[in-house]
Design a protein around this nucleic acid. Structure first.
Lengths: 239, 239
DNA sequence: AGAGGATACAGTGTATACACTGGAATGCAA
DNA sequence: TTGCATTCCAGTGTATACACTGTATCCTCT
């Protein structure tokens, strides 16, 4: 009475989207970079078909954007969008805080504390990875799969932009200090405090990032590409 | 210097995902229903390839679930999941409220009021459609594209479950009354009141829906599928 | 008649092949 | 040298074809 199904081959499809997602999240695939189906297919040893499917899935997640000409690129976010997503992240995380405190067992808290302690002295890249894991694990405790999913998507989208800040600013040590406070609040069953910390965590990082971005993009603001090209041209002609 | 692209044929791809999404949202494709690639392809007059891409995109949106056997079905949500999503909706909508009030022009407000008035006496199906549009238009005013997108996804996911409530309960008239109040709050530039109304709107509807669902699912709660299968088997054997 | 195994079928995953497009390079004329 | 038309090519969208698997059917044997 019920229909059936089966697949044909190794079916490493999920792996393709996974690899691309990680590549984008970790910044190896830069925002705006074109994603050529044939190249990806060759690199992964598959045909274009499963690559296209992965690309469309990532597009639905917002990580990839299909230009009207059909070409896929890593989604590039405008500063206002990054700002919006940081605020959204703060909202979602603080929303989960009470549930996290409610359902976390001492074992969970111990595991998280261990994770945080292990992050205390790490280079920026590794720290960013662990930071992502830490927050994901935290969200998992809320027992709100859809909210956690949405939050994870937001985290993934803003991560390429956050990493820059971690590398350049003193962001890492401040964030670590706050992580320790979060664990303490969690151990003390203080949901309100955890929510407050998560809000502060996001908003402080967001402001630092925006300041950095503003400083970085000031000179390039309007005619950035044009002036850059003009300078290059002048040099070339002057020689 | 820059790469180029082009497509081959009519490229009605976006239409495919769109049609499926609408079909799911409007309940024409019921939760749990298998989505056979070949059938869809034939119905839409295309091959399976673009259908697969649409399916994967919808899966990334959460509207479609791929079973481990590979078969795609319309995602079926457990009551707790619907509950979680209603709460999330309330959070997101109330978050947007201040921004909506801030950026809405008198023209926007008039257009929304007209929309609401036109909804006053409609059959359940048409009203549900307009209701969806109304909320989407409201979100659009917040000038927060990503939050609005996320909210739209949530609305789409819960809509099949909400429609039942609208059909059965007196939900429609209560919701309409609240819609009018929202427009008034919007016209009065009262962001806090709008946020309060949106929260109340969602939470009341959510409770009504849950009560309805609980009543409806009481007998099938635990071993629903097993008992269903057993009954079917019994009928079949008894005949 | 009932249990056990071969076979057909439905359905999926993937690769290959073809059609089509827009920009880049090239060649030609002025 | 410059302006323009033509050709070439990179890249995409889609269809067809094939490989594979789980389930259901049917046939056989006891």
């Amino acid at each position: 009475m019920e229909s059936s199904t089966a697949n044909g081959r190794p079916a490493q499809r999920p792996a393709i989207a996974e690899v691309l997602r990680e590549g984008i999240r970790q910044g190896m695939l830069a925002p705006g970079q074109p994603l050529i189906q044939a190249s990806i297919a060759e690199a992964m040893g598959v045909s274009r078909i499963p690559v296209r499917e992965a690309l469309h899935a990532l597009a639905a997640e917002g990580l990839v954007t299909f230009g009207e000409d059909g070409g896929a690129r890593v989604t590039a976010l405008a500063p206002e969008e990054v700002d919006e997503l940081w605020t959204l992240r703060a909202l979602l995380e603080s929303h989960m805080a009470p549930a996290i405190v409610r359902t976390a067992t001492p074992v969970d808290v111990a595991a998280l504390r261990e994770l945080v302690v292990a992050m205390d002295d790490l280079d920026a890249t590794t720290w960013s990875d662990r930071n992502f894991t830490f927050h994901q694990e935290l969200h998992r405790l809320a027992d709100m799969p859809h909210v956690a999913d949405a939050t994870g998507r937001v985290l993934t989208m803003i991560e390429p932009y956050s990493r820059v800040a971690v590398t350049v600013l003193q962001e890492q040590s401040e964030a670590q200090a706050e992580h320790h406070q979060m664990i303490d609040a969690l151990a003390a069953d203080d949901g309100d405090e955890l929510a407050r910390l998560l809000l502060h965590h996001s908003h402080r990082a967001r402001k630092a990032l925006l300041a950095y971005a503003a400083q970085r993009e000031k000179p390039a603001d309007r005619h950035a590409v044009a002036t850059e090209a003009a300078r290059s041209l002048a040099d070339h002609l002057g020689a």
